[in-house]
Design a protein around this nucleic acid. Sequence first.
DNA 1: TCTGGGGTCCTAGGACCC
DNA 2: TCTGGGGTCCTAGGACCC
Length: 424
Amino acid sequence: MNTCFALVDCNSFYASCEKIFRPDLRHRPVIVLSNNDGCVVARSSEAKALGIGMGVPFYQVEDLVLRYNIAVFSSNYTLYADISQRVMATLEHLAPQVEIYSIDEAFLDLSPFSFDPSLPDLADHIRSTVRQWTGITTCIGIAPSKTLAKLANQAAKRYPATNGVVDLRDPQRQERLLRLMPASEVWGIGRKTAHRLSTMGIETAWQLATAATERLRKRLSINVSRTQRELRGEACFRFEDSPALRKQLICSRSFGERVTTIQPMSEAICTYASRAAERLRAEQLHARRLTVFIRTSPFDTSGPGYSNSAGAPLPFATNDTRHIIELATDLLSHIWRQGYAYIKGGVMLSELTSNDESPPCLFHEPQERQRSTALMEAVDHINRNGKSQIWFGGQGCSGGSWQMKRARVSPAYTSRWQDIPVVR
DNA sequence: TCTGGGGTCCTAGGACCC
DNA sequence: TCTGGGGTCCTAGGACCC
C-alpha cells in the first residue's frame, strides 16, 4: 500500500482565534505579539498584506499599527490552546488517524485512500466542517510524504485558485511545484542549510530533490539526505499514531523590567520552578534533573553580557514543588553575578519518567512519598480554579516588576465563566 | 526605550576505559 | 626519551521546527 498523508494547517492561527469572538475585526488587520509583548508572532492576511513580517520586534511596526488601524493583541495561550483542541477534536471526528503536530497543524494518515480520486472532495469536506464547527479556516496539502504534504500545504496557502486544497499525489504535479519552490522553503531546510546549499549551486526544491545524494550527506547532514528522499516521494518520516514521550520541560520568561538584584531573580526562578512542577504533575511525570539559567539581553551592546546555567540531579525522581524550589534556589546562588541587568531566567526539568515507572528512593520513606503526593494534590486542587491562590514563600508576593508585560490580552472567552461572550 | 517560548535531534569533542 | 587504537558515554552547542 502506498503512503498518503494530508497536512491540515490553520490559517494565521492566533490572529484567527482573536477574530472568532470579534466580528467587528473581520476585515481589519490583526497582529498577535509574543510574550512580554516583544515580537509579532501572528498576522491576519490583511496584516501580512501590509508587509508586517513574522517575528519582527513590535516597536518597529508601531507606526504602521497607527496608520492602518491594526488591532494588536498580547498572546492569549489559554484561548489558543482551547480553540486548538476543538479543531483537533473535529479532525479526529472526520479522519481515521490524526497526528497532532503543533498547536495549529495535524497530519492525517490517508494511506488506505492513496488511489482514491475523491480525496480532494474529502479535504473540502474537512475544511468546511472545521470552519463551521470552530470558526477557523484551514488549508490542506495531500502527498505521499510529510515533506511533500507540507509543500502542498504552502502552495494551497499561496495560490487562492486552489481553494485551500492541493493534491500532490501525481509525480508530474510534484515536479512542477518543486521547480517553483526555493529550497529554503522546504521543511527542515533552515537559513544555514539553505545558504550552504546555495554555495553548492542548489537553489530550488527540484534541484535539491535531484542532487547527488552522497554529496549531500557528506557536505551536510543525514537529515538533509532524508529530506531529499522525502521530496522524491519516499516517506522517511513515519506517521506517529501516539504522541512521543516528553523528554524535557522548560519554563522561562523575559522580564517586564531588567532585574539587577538577587531577590526578584530568586522570586522569578521560584515561580518558574513552581509552574514547571505543576506541569509535571499535570502530565503525571517525575523529574530527576534540574537546570537553572539566567542571562542578560543578547541585543544589549552597551556593556559586557552574561549568560550561565547550572544543572544538578534531584535527590530522587520527584514532582514535589518543595524539592524543586529548594534545588533551584541553590543552583541560582551558584551562577548569580551581581552587577548585570538580567533580561531572562528559567528552569528546565529533564530525565523525566512517568509516575508508575519512577522508582521510590531507597532513603525516602514510603509514608513521606504519600504525604508529598497528598500535599501537592491539595495545592493543585486549590489552585485549579483560575488565578493562583496558594503559593510557596520563595515566589514572593505578586506584582514583582519582573513579571512579563501583557498589556493587550483578550478575554478568556472559552475558559472562564466571567469572560463568556454575551449576546444581547 | 522597546527583540518570545518551548521543543527535538545531531554532531563534535572531551573524559575515560581497556 | 620513546608513547596506539578503539570504544563508550556525556555534554555543549548548533540547527531546525512551530
